[in-house]
Simulated assay, not measured.
Amino acid sequence: MRDEERNGRTPEGRRPDDEKNNGVVTAFGRQLKLMRTRAGLERPEFGKLVGYAPQSIASFEQGRRIPPPRFIEQADEVLNAGGVLVALKEEVGRAQYPAFFRDMAKLEAEAVSLHVYAALAVPGLLQTEAYARAVFTTRRPLLDGDTVEQRIAARLARQKIFSRKPMPTLSFVIEESVLRRPVGGRATWRDQLEQLLSHGRLRNVELQVMPNERAEHCGLAGPFTLVETGDGRRMSYVEIQQTSRLYTDRPAVRESEEQYGILRAQALTPSESLAFVEGLLGET
């Protein structure tokens, strides 16, 4: 829980972190201001109706902060916008993600299956808030405080996939070295291992560990994610060093699918993997 929530104050939203995102958020802010002034409401009066401080309203209208979905829905209702503001909610919401991940975030939210190979860090979908914070605060070049909070909120929001209905099929192959690295300190590391156990026991999730001792390993080219959407599209997403590529052509995707199948065969089974994580917890 964020400090604003603990203190009974509504969070003001998050700062967009690139020009394209800023354009989307700025356009929303201009539309919001136009509708507010047409309704004859000053910021303090409007803020009381939607539960936000005048300073927050100003930040939204000026495109300096990303308004949360709840605010957009409330503003649309209070201003009798007829769904005009709500229609922008998805695009505004995508502004919280880094530019290189934005398309993937949309596909992920629609996926019927996701298969993730992780070689560098615990996959974002499985990260605790403390682990995610450690990842973002230690990144170089340094991210400013607003961007860190924005990235954490966006990462945690993605985890709604675990409670989505119908349930998607999710699988993860994670390198042993990733699980042994105490990112954020030992307490954060232990909590992260416990969360991996919790998620790994879900009926629609399979978690596998790739042992360090494996002499044969077909994933040395790096991490990737396989995505399948409800309309049958299959894609392979590769991300490294703040850049990404989404492969949609069938030959390239088939290569990744073959690679992932072999990785799963080389890794510990799901039951062996959960036992392995339990063993790591015993060492902490």
Score class of each variant (00 low, 15 high):
Ala111Thr: 04
Arg43Met: 13
Gln127Glu: 14
Asn80Thr: 02
Gly219Phe: 05
Ala215Lys: 02
Gly185Ile: 08
Lys160Gly: 15
Thr248His: 04
Ile72Tyr: 02
Val78Met: 04
Glu258Arg: 12
Ala265Leu: 13
Thr284Ala: 15
Glu61Gln: 11
Val277Thr: 05
Asn7Lys: 03
Leu207Gln: 05
Arg38Pro: 00
Ala95Gln: 03
Gly184Met: 06
Val116Leu: 09
Val277Ala: 01
Val148Lys: 00
Glu42Arg: 12
Leu32Gly: 05
Asp231Trp: 03
Asn21Gly: 15
Leu79Asp: 10
Val238Trp: 12
Ala134Val: 09
Arg186Asp: 11
Gly279Asp: 14
Gln266Tyr: 07
Arg214Glu: 13
Val92Ser: 03
Leu142Asp: 14
Leu280Tyr: 12
Ala39Lys: 04
Ile57His: 04
Ile152Arg: 02
Arg181Leu: 08
Ser59Met: 07
Glu77Gln: 14
Glu258Leu: 15
Phe60Asn: 05
Val277Phe: 02
Leu32Glu: 10
Arg201Thr: 08
Ser273Ile: 10
Leu193Trp: 09
His217Glu: 09
Pro123Asp: 10
Ala154Glu: 10
Asn21Tyr: 03
Ile57Ser: 06
Asp18Phe: 10
Ala154Arg: 01
Val84Trp: 02
Ile72His: 02
Leu170Met: 09
Glu213Phe: 06
Gln259Leu: 15
Leu142Arg: 08
Val148Glu: 09
Ser236Ala: 15
Arg65Gln: 13
Ile161Thr: 03
Pro211Val: 07
Gly83Cys: 09
Arg94Pro: 01
Gln159Arg: 04
Ala275Thr: 12
Glu258Asn: 13
Leu193Cys: 09
Tyr247Asp: 14
Glu73Leu: 08
Arg64Ser: 08
Arg234Thr: 12
Phe224Glu: 10
Tyr131Leu: 08
Arg151Val: 00
Gln259Pro: 00
Arg233Met: 07
Met210Phe: 11
Asn22Ala: 15
Leu156Asp: 10
Ile262Asp: 13
Arg140Lys: 14
Asp144Met: 11
Arg180Thr: 01
Arg234Tyr: 06
Lys160His: 07
Thr248Pro: 00
Leu49Asp: 05
Gly261Met: 12
Arg233Cys: 01
Thr243Pro: 00
Ala157Leu: 06
Val205Cys: 06
Glu12Val: 11
Gly63Thr: 07
Arg139Asn: 06
Leu280Ser: 10
Tyr237Leu: 07
Lys48Ile: 01
Arg180Gln: 14
Gln127Thr: 10
Gly261Ala: 14
Leu196Ser: 04
Gln74Val: 01
Gly51Ser: 03
Lys20Pro: 04
